[in-house]
Amino acid sequence: MIEVRFHGRGGQGSVVASRILANAFVRENKFGSAFPMFGFERRGAPVTAYGRFDDEPVLEKTQIYYPDCLIVLDSSQRDSPRVYEGLKPNGILILNSTMGPKDPHENLALVAMADATRIAVEEIGLPAPNTGMLGVFAAATGWIKLASILAGLEDYFDGSRLEGNRRCVQRGFEETKSMRL
């Protein structure tokens, strides 16, 4: 099982990103579950979301303590020790930034980045880096096909927003810069 923890802020689309990813795994005949944890819903507040993806049905409905991968949508959390808590050895960081963490966590093996906020502003006119980050995730991990993420977008967006988000995913995928540690 792959366990992914999303760190973002209300309004960045972390929750939707976690759902699109679960959707993509199900499209590959696998299983996925995703849920967020926050108190009162409000923009700007820190949001954590959890994604589990497996070949078998996912039974656990508990938070993730030992993630294989971190998706950090909010670059201001890039150096927060809380984000890296429990990260497994050979861990992967998917970061919405052009600049990696100052002092990478000892369990980090791969950092993959793109400026997904800029991509989103250019493509959909909103600073919502969520779908671009999924493109980076697909490029860096190889755990999911880009096509599966693209196919699932229509369940969450329509019209010009759907087209724009397709471009965000595609550009996130193409503009990924990976750094092995």
Binding site: R19, A22, N23, G32, S33, A34, F35, V58, K61
Partner: peptide, 8 residues
């Protein structure tokens, strides 16, 4: 834990 959890 279930209201907002998305799964197949």
């Amino acid at each position: 834990y279930l209201s907002y959890l998305a799964e197949k």
